[in-house]
C-alpha cells in the first residue's frame, strides 16, 4: 500500500490551523504572528530546497555524492553545537571538539548499520543513508551540545573543587571526573527518556512516518528499535570522545585547569 497523495491545495488547507493561530495572535496582540509566519515560511523554503537536493542526490547514485551531503549535514550540526554553548572553546576547538567525534562516529555507525543490519542495494543507497544519518546527527547534536555546555560551565563554576583535587595530587582526568559524570548524564538523558517513553507516551517519528506511508506496523517497530539502538550507540560513543577531548583541552599536560581556553559568547547565539 502506498501513501495517499497530497496536492498543494491540501497543504493550504492544512495551513488553516496556523492561519487561525496567527489571526488570534493579531487579535489578542500577542505579537507572535510575525514569528509564526517567518518560521512557517522558513520551513516551507527549507523543505522545498531539500526536495531538490534529495532528488538530485538520489539520481546521482554515487557514494561520493552521498558522503559530501553527509559531511555538509555534519558541518551544519557542528556549527549548531557551538551556537548552544555559553562558554565556547577558543579558536577552532570550538568546532572540532564536538564536531569531529560527532561526524566521525556518526558515519561509522551509519556504515555499520547500512552494511550489516539493513543491507540495501547498493549499501550507500541515499534513500536509507541520508535520513538515517539525519536522525543519528540530530540526536548526538543535542547530546554533545548539552554535555559540552555542562562540562565547560562545570569547570568554571566548580574550579575551586577541581583545583583542590589537583592540589591533592590527582590527575586531570581524576580531578574532572565528577564534572564529566554530570555532563555525560545530562547528554544521555534525552535518548534515555525517549527510549523509556517510546510507544507508551510517544509514537516515534520514523515509525509514525512508516505507518502513515502504509508499512507493516511490526516492521516499522523493528526499524524503530534498530535506529534507536544506533542513535543510543552513536550518542554514547560520541559523548565519551567529546567529553574526553574537552577534559584534555580544559587542562594541560602539567595537569592544570586552563579556563583561559574558554571564552564567553552570547547564548543562545
Amino acid at each position: 500500500m502506498a501513501s495517499i497523495y497530497i496536492d498543494n491545495w491540501h497543504i493550504v488547507l492544512a495551513a488553516l490551523a496556523i492561519f487561525i493561530t496567527g489571526a488570534l495572535s493579531l487579535l489578542m496582540q500577542l505579537g507572535l504572528a510575525k514569528s509564526i509566519f517567518i518560521a512557517a515560511t522558513r520551513m516551507i523554503v527549507q523543505l522545498a530546497l531539500v526536495t531538490l537536493v534529495l532528488a538530485w542526490v538520489f539520481e546521482q547514485d554515487s557514494v561520493w555524492v552521498v558522503l559530501m551531503l553527509l559531511l555538509l549535514m555534519g558541518g551544519f550540526a557542528t556549527y549548531e553545537i557551538r551556537a548552544r554553548q555559553k562558554l565556547a572553546f577558543t579558536g577552532l576547538w570550538s568546532l572540532g571538539l564536538g564536531g569531529i567525534p560527532m561526524v566521525g562516529v556518526g558515519i561509522m555507525v551509519l556504515t555499520f548499520t547500512l552494511t550489516t543490519v539493513i543491507g540495501p542495494e547498493p549499501w550507500y543507497a541515499p534513500r536509507y543513508a541520508i535520513p538515517l544519518f539525519g536522525m543519528l546527527l540530530g540526536n548526538s547534536l543535542t547530546a554533545v551540545a548539552l554535555a559540552l555546555d555542562q562540562i565547560t560551565r562545570g569547570a568554571k563554576q566548580r574550579q575551586g573543587e577541581v583545583n583542590d583535587r589537583l592540589a591533592l595530587g590527582m590527575s586531570r582526568t581524576e580531578a574532572m571526573l565528577p564534572i564529566v559524570r554530570d555532563a555525560m548524564a545530562t547528554g544521555l538523558l534525552p535518548i534515555i527518556n525517549s527510549m523509556a517513553a517510546a510507544g507508551v507516551v510517544s509514537i516515534p517519528g520514523m515509525m509514525t512516518g512508516q505507518i502513515l506511508a502504509g508499512a507493516d506496523p511490526a516492521n516499522a517497530v523493528r526499524y524503530q528499535i534498530m535506529i534507536t539502538f544506533a542513535i543510543a550507540g552513536t550518542t554514547g560513543i560520541t559523548l565519551l570522545l567529546a567529553t574526553w577531548l574537552a577534559v584534555m583541552r580544559l587542562t594541560d599536560n602539567r595537569h592544570r585547569l586552563r579556563l583561559d581556553r574558554l571564552r564567553s559568547q552570547k547564548y543562545p547565539a
Binding site: R158, G160, E161, D164, L166, A167, G169, H255
Partner: peptide, 15 residues
Amino acid sequence: TEWRKRVRYVSAEPS
C-alpha cells in the same frame, strides 16, 4: 601529580 604530592597548596576555603 607527583610534584603536588610533595608540594601541597592548601587554599583558604577548601572545596
